[in-house]
């Protein structure tokens, strides 16, 4: 049975399109892998209990809280982080631009979660209602905006995304 136990785990992760092969300790969270091993600090460490959402990334097209995701369970996953939202030429994506225009953040700590959840919402819903936005952002805490500018930002992002698609 001992032969079924691994002390370190080999994971292959495609992060923002780039393949990384890493040998990691079993207990490493995806958050620590991104920040410590890949130096991608756009994904923020907040509560470490899954409440605040600042550590949100997308795993195989679905948002997740990276602080409560064990990296070793993710072999061959495709991860998109906040850094991966930016356009290839380095300009802001329509969603990022909408958050900038509508002051959808103040200190910016919650921004990774808010933006990643908005991106996932708008993929399946191009014209979300207030309550759909609330549901989509429910896993994220913001202590600056009072959430009103976030709602405006998501609506503006929906308009920008539609303009870009047309």
């Amino acid at each position: 049975m001992e032969d079924m136990l691994e002390d370190t785990v080999l994971v292959n992760l495609r992060v923002n399109g780039k393949l990384h092969e890493l040998e990691i300790p079993a207990h490493k969270s995806l958050l620590d892998l991104l920040r410590e091993d890949l130096n991608m600090t756009g994904t923020h460490m907040g509560c470490m209990t899954g409440h605040c959402g600042a550590c949100t990334v997308s795993i195989d097209g679905r948002v997740a809280k990276s602080c409560i995701t064990l990296a070793a369970t993710l072999s061959r996953a495709k991860i998109t982080t906040i850094e991966g939202l930016t356009e290839e030429d380095g300009t802001l994506s329509p969603i990022q631009q909408a958050f900038w225009d509508e002051a959808g953040f103040q200190c910016g700590y919650c921004a990774p979660g808010m933006l990643m959840c908005t991106a996932e919402l708008l993929e399946s819903n191009s014209d979300p209602s207030d309550s759909e936005i609330e549901t989509a952002l429910a896993g994220n805490l913001c202590r600056c905006t009072g959430y009103q500018s976030l709602k405006r930002a998501v609506k503006a992002a929906a308009v920008k995304a539609k303009e870009k698609a047309s």
């Binding site: 136990l5 079993a26 207990h27 969270s29 470490m48 899954g50 409560i68 064990l70 369970t73």
Partner: peptide, 26 residues
């Protein structure tokens, strides 16, 4: 046992649980 980790990992992060072996059933 670890599946999605949403129950286990917060307890691990806060030191309430310290698994000696993670059994990934994914």
């Amino acid at each position: 046992i670890i599946a999605g980790g949403q129950e286990l990992m917060p307890s691990v992060n806060y030191g309430a649980l310290m698994p000696e072996v993670y059994i990934d059933v994914g």
